[in-house]
Write a protein that binds this DNA or RNA. Structure first.
Lengths: 141, 141
DNA sequence: TATTGTAATGATACCCATTCTCACCTAGAC
DNA sequence: GTCTAGGTGAGAATGGGTATCATTACAATA
């Protein structure tokens, strides 16, 4: 049983071809730091001669999200409504988006995380998720 | 010249009836901590016998956002695609959303803010905006 | 192997928040 | 008051995303 199947079944999802394939695509996009849209995935599949219904892609992505295997982001006001997905591998991280180039940088800061937990606790809550996007610009521009 | 007109012209916007009115509405929603959607505004206007085209409402909100007078939020995956607006009065604050009740709490934390600036700087950027949403659940649920 | 129930898939119709278009109107300068 | 850049509104268009539903794959049992 390969890695994708293991991840899926461990997360409580039946390992189907579609899920494995999308999981793989997101995995292969990781090193380039690529956040893929449903459309990107559709296009990449077609490019390699495969065919998958766009509705299935959305469904699979939502399933993977619900299972905690991928994260969904909405970075830009102008592309709002378009979701970008990335594999939720390992450590949670946050994003910095350059308003000029659109480049997305990832970072991770335990101090901010701890602080968030503390604030939630102070209000009687526990954190189940967080989303921090810092919009930035090249300094001195 | 009233407060709304001053705020608008100071921000470089021509003071029109539509802009003043929407500004007022957002202002009056502040004490209740209400985040209004374009539709909410449309409804509230109609309720008081006024009429404004929905396209104008969207346009005005976008203008106000560009001028830095209002902030736009997208809190929930299930209502994604729906923007919520609030007046950008004074101190920046972040949000905590209860995944169970949908309640939105606001908080403010100088430490997190300072940390964000530091991280941006370390990468050669300056912060132009940020958005932090912590998804929470009643503790011990 | 055949049966049968359950869940996944995909084509397509649909939804609905938002944006676009364009004729018309206004605010503000002179 | 006149002029003009820019604001407004009705309705059409856009475009992610979802719902529907017939078909297909799968797995368990006979």
């Amino acid at each position: 049983m390969n890695r994708e199947r293991r991840a899926l079944t461990r997360a409580g999802l039946k390992a189907t071809a579609a899920r494995e394939r999308i999981f793989q695509l997101l995995e292969s996009a990781l090193p380039e730091r690529h956040h893929l849209s449903a459309d990107d995935i559709y296009a990449r599949l077609r490019q390699s001669g495969e065919r998958m219904g766009i509705s299935s892609i959305y469904r699979v992505l939502t399933d993977l999200e619900d299972a905690g295997l991928v994260h969904r982001h909405h970075f830009d006001r102008h592309t709002m409504g378009r979701s970008l997905f990335e594999l939720a591998d390992g450590a949670a991280h946050d994003h910095m988006v350059c308003v000029e180039t659109g480049r997305i940088l990832e970072f991770q800061d335990p101090l901010i995380e701890a602080r968030q937990r503390a604030i939630a606790e102070r209000h009687g809550f526990e954190v189940v998720g967080r989303k921090l996007v810092i919009r930035v610009r090249r300094a001195g521009a």
